[in-house]
Design a protein around this nucleic acid. Structure first.
Lengths: 291, 291
DNA sequence: GCATTTACCTGACTTAAGTCAGGTAAAATT
DNA sequence: AATTTTACCTGACTTAAGTCAGGTAAATGC
């Protein structure tokens, strides 16, 4: 019986090999050997340093040199010496190279679309794919400070409000269109952080300068695809570090017992439970931390 | 922002390519070119017909011939003419070939284990991987009649009872050790079906001959990894076909409103709701279908 | 300032993979 | 029975990928 973890993983590998291999094969759709196509795409993704591309693709220096020359002869890339170190070379795409790279991207998109369109339960499938990818990439999660009105932030906040609406027994009213608190979550009064995993927004947290003698942590959310990876802790640590940068000395936050994992997280993170400090109807738990 | 389906799928492909590629590379761990190793493994998996292996691996007939001869020279496989068609050839592993194939399997297992061990949230990760694999392989689901006391069946039944225990407000008492009903779910009185996806049991259903003038459908279960693929319908259709084979004319079943998707399924499947026909404390919905 | 290291290039080579045009014997078709 | 098709084999060839031993020029270390 193939129910042990190793068998399950190997079954997964067998299942995705065919589909993912088909995606890779878009690198062969334009009459260019795989090696040259991979180099072109590495450059298209923004890699400019020859040594970096070589390390990324695991190529021999001689082979890399020949592949690059081939692309140069095709008129797709140009190289010039690194001004800071004339031994090194900087590569970039010409206009023709941009066009060719875009064609590869389109091919990949088309194959991905064709593969996906064969599946009826796309939402569930993509959710599971997000989960697998987030777990596999968990060491490469990147956090960026963004404006809470930026699309990445709005994406997270919509998911957050949607979840509140589902989980609060009394529901939750979304008033996202013009968030009155957004202005308080930008520097220098506050901040807003979005966590990305290979480009996909998977979590957020806000720091809201209230003008009073404390600041508030708001809208801590982690995508279902990324739960169990310790991301909420990382977000809390990061926003706390920013609070210190902004000379904030007292952090407060409120939450609801319908979100028991949030309550547990705040307790574990060393926040102290305090009395109600606002008259918001939703929260029933209140925390504080002095920095 | 990379939140559209195509970007999410491509992110998934990027994330798994590295890991799955590492698994594939176990085919290179024994000093044999990839092509030869793939042929050896195809034979080890039970493929015996040369033409079938050629089609499966997408090889040219000349190349296949040479790879096979190489393996023969290594003493790993033997070929003999197909007795039914002397043009065709049957390949099988020698003892040395068996040993070599087992070594490849061990390599793959070890790599899989190493990859998995790097992940803390294994249960959630494997659940998501099962879901992805089941969706990708949904056209290759295989249903087999098995004894309800066989390990594959017990695996499904444990999952089934576990889910009942979680979902019934009053809980559910598992008395699996010696299932008194198992004997009524084997031919000629009844039947038990397990659905497999590339070896993993992902669903089951039982047909219980009661001795009375009706038979019962019992223990319809679909793994969370395979929901949304229409498997429950397939299982119902299959068990109904078997009931006809056994000259059963009336099918009954009971279920509980804590399982709304089951109630909805039975209604959609054309079963008629009837009055309570037993004094089991758990069910509160009763269905019948005349064949 | 001089030796060493580094980044890239070049030429000669090997290996793996695959293609293509025949060829043989058995099976299927007419 | 003759023809065609099929399954496999063989030899000659091409291409892609990669390896290895030098070589040049710039940067670095002592």
């Amino acid at each position: 019986m193939q129910t042990d973890p190793v068998s399950r993983f190997r079954r997964f590998a067998r299942a995705v090999t065919a589909e993912v291999g088909a995606l890779d094969s878009s690198f062969l759709g334009r009459g260019r050997p795989l090696g040259a196509a991979r180099v072109l795409n590495a450059i298209g993704q923004g890699r400019a340093d020859v040594a970096e591309i070589r390390a990324y693709l695991g190529l021999d220096s001689g082979l890399m040199s020949r592949l690059l020359r081939g692309l140069e002869e095709e008129g797709l890339v140009v190289t010039r010496p690194d001004p800071g170190d004339a031994r090194r070379r900087i590569v970039s795409l010409t206009d023709a190279g941009q066009t060719e790279f875009a064609a590869y991207e389109r091919l990949s998109d088309e194959r991905a679309e064709a593969l996906l369109s064969r599946h009826a339960d796309q939402d569930a499938l993509l959710a599971a794919m997000d989960r697998v990818a987030s777990a596999l990439l968990r060491e490469k999660i990147e956090m960026r400070e963004v404006d809470p009105r930026a699309p990445e932030a709005v994406h997270c906040l919509q998911a957050y409000y949607g979840e509140l609406a589902r989980r609060f027994p009394q529901g939750f009213e979304v008033s996202l269109s013009r968030d009155p608190e957004a202005g308080a979550m930008v520097r220098p009064r506050g901040s807003f952080i979005v966590a990305f995993s290979d480009g996909l927004p998977i979590g957020c947290v806000g720091l809201k300068g209230t003008g009073a003698d404390y600041s508030e942590i708001k809208r801590l959310w982690v995508s279902p695809a990324a739960r169990g990876l310790g991301l909420a802790h990382q977000l809390m640590a990061r926003i706390e570090a920013i609070a210190r940068e902004l000379f904030i000395t007292v952090l407060r936050l409120d939450t609801n017992s319908a979100l028991p994992e949030a309550v547990a997280l705040y307790r574990r993170a060393g926040l102290r439970e305090i009395d109600r400090f606002n008259d918001d109807p939703y929260p029933d738990h209140f925390f504080e931390k002095r920095l």
